[in-house]
Simulated scan of single mutants.
Amino acid sequence: MNVEKIIQRILTVMSDEAMWVGLFVVFLKVILITVVAIVLVKVLRMLIRKTFSVRIKGPLVYNERRQQTLSKLLSNVVAYVVYFIAVVSILAAFTIDITGLIAGAGVLGLAVGFGAQNLVRDVITGFFIIFEDQFSVGDYVRIGVAEGTVEEIGLRTTKVKAWTGELFIFPNGNIMDVVNFSIHNSIAVVDINISYESDIKRVEELIMEFLNSLQERYEQIIKPAELLGVQNLTTTEVVMRITAETMPMQHFAVAREIRRDLKDFLDQRGVEIPYPRMLMVQRSPVESNITKNANNE
């Protein structure tokens, strides 16, 4: 008897047209809200990228590093806000009391805030990192033991990718000491080894001739390269040092190019680069007998 009543109730509910219409309307609202949120996020992110891609003219100084960082940050903030509004709208479509939910979320957020001091510290530190432009996306930095290119700066975490592929993720509150290699120009340092048999004055003149043509060949060099002179005297060679001011983080590539070209330049002019040698001394039989007799006496 109970089974028949349950089946009857199920059939009554299933045949209720008003219920199905209401569910269909709610279903359409959920789909519409979701689609609108996704499209709106994509459109707003595109507008942000377009806005920051345009060179801003005015009395304020804007640079590409700061624009790229702010672009990514604003894109993330827009996504969070739009999706939050979408979730609230979906809950409202299911006739859930949003006012009570928001009030409860506020109280819960206040309670969580007291317990999540590290999270609050990360957000505040992230804000000041971006506001003070300590480093930006694309900069080459050293944070603690990690060294690499900044991939992303958020309000809570910062991501740094090493040149070998590792991705370091730092909570912003844990970032204490930062070395930024991308703000100022770099210095390429090249040491060239010369043999003691070479004429040092002539070698210096040849190197100066080579350095005078560097800035024309390498656009990364900002100022004319300098020959500092003799850097060191070792047991086998004379070490001469060259420096060149380059664009930020271009000193490694420029130093490699200078070493290669300078080596070819000196080879063509007969300047010898020292390398390890072995001197073999072979005594004649007469000298060996004289030495043996002297030892016996």
Rank of each mutant, 00 (worst) to 15 (best):
M1R: 10
M1V: 11
Q8W: 08
I10F: 08
L11F: 07
S15R: 15
E17M: 04
A18V: 15
I31P: 05
L32Y: 09
A37E: 02
K42D: 00
I48T: 12
V54I: 12
V54D: 09
L60E: 05
E64F: 02
Q67K: 10
Q67V: 09
L70N: 05
L73F: 09
L74R: 12
V77D: 07
V78P: 06
I85W: 08
L91T: 09
L91R: 02
F94K: 02
I98P: 02
T99I: 09
A111P: 09
G113Q: 05
F127C: 11
F128G: 03
F131E: 06
F131C: 07
I143A: 04
I143T: 08
G148M: 06
G148I: 03
T149P: 09
E152L: 11
L155P: 05
T157V: 14
T158G: 05
F168K: 10
P171D: 04
P171T: 04
G173W: 04
G173I: 06
M176K: 15
V179Y: 09
N185Y: 03
Y196Q: 09
E197M: 04
V203R: 08
V203N: 01
L206K: 11
E209T: 04
L211W: 07
Q215H: 13
N232A: 05
T235Q: 03
E237K: 15
E237V: 10
T246Q: 13
Q250L: 02
Q250Y: 11
H251R: 05
A253W: 14
V254I: 13
R256S: 08
D261R: 01
L262V: 10
R277P: 00
R277T: 15
V286K: 12
E287G: 00
E287P: 01
A294W: 10
A294R: 14
